[in-house]
Simulated scan of single mutants.
Amino acid sequence: MPTPLKTCWPSSWGNVPGIDYSAPTLDLQAIVPKAGDKTWAQFDRHDAVQAGETVQLLWCPPLSAVNGWSEQPSEIAQSYLLKAKVLCSRGDGHELDILGSEQLLPMLRSLPREQSAWSLGQIATEQGPIIALEEACWSASAVVGRLTYLSACTPFEAHMELLLEVTGDEVFGLFSAHVDPGGAFYSFGRRTLEGRELMAVEQALKVARPLKDLHDNYLRS
């Protein structure tokens, strides 16, 4: 089985030449990187990439790329997973050769069940490791494209984002992002949440404040 590609979430992307990003509306398909495109992206210190490396990259439309999905949750449905080769680096910017792209939500819904794909991030305490989500001091959620988006943070600088499929009494995790001072970890795979993980997610959802878009829609599909 091939080694899974490292997944990164760039902090910013180069603009597409000829596109006026200040216009009241933008054509989504004109700004999404596609196979054969060359573009630039910047990564934060957690996502170190090297020239010659092939990686998976999360791409979000402009608003959520800057402010996060929690400010414009509808843009989760307009986000993409890219496959790219890092061509070269210049400062904290990297030139990329885009090898492929697919819309995020259809890809997540098609994932096969893989219980060992990932687990919820943990944090160390004096009593031993605990699930970070159990210590969440804030959480918020939205339903986008029949999936549930959950965002949460802890007092210990851990930030978590999950995309879940909730069907009756079962909760499936499809995507997990966990960022803390120790690093950034992004994982894909359909997992049935059970035991403490399920309890932590259900509690976070129970107290989560509802999210809605804070800005008018500006994207044309």
Rank of each mutant, 00 (worst) to 15 (best):
M1T: 06
T3R: 13
T3E: 15
W9Q: 07
S12P: 02
W13Q: 07
G14Y: 05
G14P: 00
S22G: 06
T25P: 02
L26N: 03
A30D: 12
A30M: 12
I31C: 10
P33A: 08
G36A: 03
T39F: 14
Q42T: 13
Q42Y: 11
D44L: 11
R45S: 13
H46V: 10
G52D: 12
T54A: 10
L58V: 15
W59G: 09
P61D: 08
L63S: 07
S64M: 07
W69S: 04
W69H: 06
P73I: 00
E75P: 01
E75L: 10
I76S: 11
I76F: 12
I76G: 09
Q78V: 08
S79C: 03
Y80C: 09
L81F: 01
L81I: 06
L82C: 08
V86H: 12
S89M: 14
G91D: 08
D92A: 13
H94M: 13
I98K: 12
S101Q: 15
S101T: 14
E102D: 13
E102N: 11
Q103M: 15
L104G: 09
P106A: 07
M107Q: 14
M107F: 14
R109W: 07
A117W: 10
S119T: 07
L120K: 04
G121C: 07
Q122D: 07
I123D: 10
I123N: 04
T125P: 10
I130L: 11
A136L: 03
W138A: 04
V143S: 13
V143L: 09
L147F: 01
T148L: 04
T148W: 06
T148D: 03
Y149A: 11
Y149I: 07
L150R: 03
L150V: 00
P155L: 08
H159S: 05
H159L: 00
H159D: 04
M160E: 01
M160D: 02
E161Y: 01
L164A: 02
G168V: 04
D169P: 00
D169W: 05
E170S: 09
E170K: 13
V171W: 11
F172T: 05
F172E: 03
G173N: 06
G173F: 11
L174R: 05
S176P: 00
V179H: 08
V179Q: 11
P181A: 10
G182I: 02
F188L: 15
G189W: 03
G189T: 00
R190M: 12
E197I: 05
E197M: 05
L198S: 05
Q203L: 06
Q203I: 05
L205V: 05
K206C: 03
P210Y: 04
L211A: 01
L211E: 04
L214M: 14
S221I: 13
